[in-house]
Computed example of a mutant assay.
Amino acid sequence: MSAPAPAVPGAPTPGRTAPAAPSGIRFEGVTVAYGGNVVLDRLDLTVEPGEVMALLGPSGSGKTTALRAVAGFVRPASGRVFLGGRDVTALPPHRRGIGMVVQSYALFPHLKVKDNVAFGLKAHRTPKAEIPGRVTEALELVGMAAYAERHPRELSGGQQQR
């Protein structure tokens, strides 16, 4: 007579069904806009438990916004976000049971992009008349001239990095 095989955690045993696999992250028709700028437009995406997912795209395409929607830092204008099979769209971040390490570039949140760029020039006592031209030149160099009047919270993570 042989000994029974050792039990495998989570494996079905005679007379018992296997536990349901936990659901991962699911976006159903999620739309997020900042002002009139739609960043996510009816996003449908499922990430299964244990699956590795990479969000790739150009600056401003919504990668960080999607992560912020999962964490609860951004509320979708429409659609739903699910974690573990549970609709968390209306839950505040502290009730979702997840964490997020955000990109931080030591930007002053109360200053516009142009003023964040000018800050270092002012600290180094650059002549006042030179500052606007140098700020414009720097913003054009990194493709950010169109964002000069925005605050950091209105930028994507990649735009903040630039």
Rank of each mutant, 00 (worst) to 15 (best):
K63G: 01
T64G: 00
S59P: 07
V32P: 01
S78G: 08
S78M: 04
D44F: 10
R80N: 05
V38R: 11
A69Y: 05
E48I: 01
A69M: 12
V74Q: 11
R68A: 13
A66F: 05
R68T: 09
V32K: 00
T65L: 04
G24V: 09
F73H: 04
R26P: 14
A77F: 01
D44A: 04
F82L: 14
S61A: 14
G60S: 03
P22M: 03
E51G: 09
P22S: 08
R75C: 06
T46L: 05
R80Q: 10
N37E: 14
V39E: 01
G60E: 07
P49W: 14
G29V: 03
G57S: 13
F27I: 10
R42G: 13
D44R: 11
V32A: 00
G35E: 05
V70I: 15
V81S: 00
T31S: 09
G79F: 03
A66V: 10
E48L: 13
P58H: 14
V74A: 13
G50N: 04
A77P: 00
A77T: 14
L55E: 05
A66S: 04
G60Y: 11
V47N: 01
R75H: 10
A21T: 15
L45S: 05
G72M: 00
G72Q: 02
R80I: 07
L83P: 01
F73C: 01
A69W: 06
N37S: 12
G57D: 12
V30I: 03
L40G: 06
M53W: 13
P76G: 06
V30S: 01
A71G: 11
A77Q: 14
G60Q: 09
R80H: 11
A33L: 07
L43C: 12
A71Y: 06
P22H: 13
E28R: 15
S78H: 07
L55Y: 04
S23T: 15
F82D: 01
T65K: 06
D44V: 08
A18F: 08
G36V: 07
N37W: 07
P76I: 10
V74E: 15
R68Y: 09
R26T: 15
F27W: 12
F73N: 01
R26V: 15
G62T: 12
P22D: 08
G62E: 01
G35Q: 06
V47S: 02
L67P: 08
L56I: 15
V70C: 03
G72R: 07
G24E: 08
L56R: 10
G36W: 06
R68E: 12
P19R: 14
V74M: 10
R75E: 03
A21L: 15
F82R: 10
A20W: 07
V81D: 04
